[in-house]
């Protein structure tokens, strides 16, 4: 008996929601970046499960591009964090309010 597709979708949705929660609520900017990675991983699980069940490899290629973009995003995000450390010596998002956001 095979695992139904909707279970995979529910799992990926759960991972994505946990990522959204972490991104919106954590104070540490590094954990926020990790939450973005979590969201992208949830999307990847969904894409690869769909590509298996619909029997089309395009989903896996899309997941491949998502991984490439995730790597680029992590590099840029962590460079921004390092620049922030140098100027402000903090990693907490609620202490950064130069832009009055």
């Amino acid at each position: 008996m095979a695992v139904p597709l909707s279970w995979y979708m529910l799992l990926s949705l759960a991972v994505f929601s946990i990522g959204v929660f972490g991104f919106l609520s954590r104070r540490n900017i590094i954990i926020m970046l990790m939450s973005i990675e979590l969201m992208l991983n949830g999307v990847n699980i969904n894409l690869i499960a769909l590509s298996h069940y619909i029997q089309d490899l395009r989903g896996q290629i899309l997941a491949f591009f998502v991984i490439a973009v995730a790597a680029a995003e992590a590099a840029i995000g962590l460079a921004i964090v390092i620049a922030m450390f140098r100027n402000r010596a903090t990693a907490h998002v609620d202490e950064i309010k130069e832009m009055q956001g």
Partner: peptide, 17 residues
Amino acid sequence: KYTTFGPTGFTFALGLF
């Protein structure tokens, strides 16, 4: 570890789920 947006973020994520 959480900002003041913590409960809002939790509600939003739960609503999304």
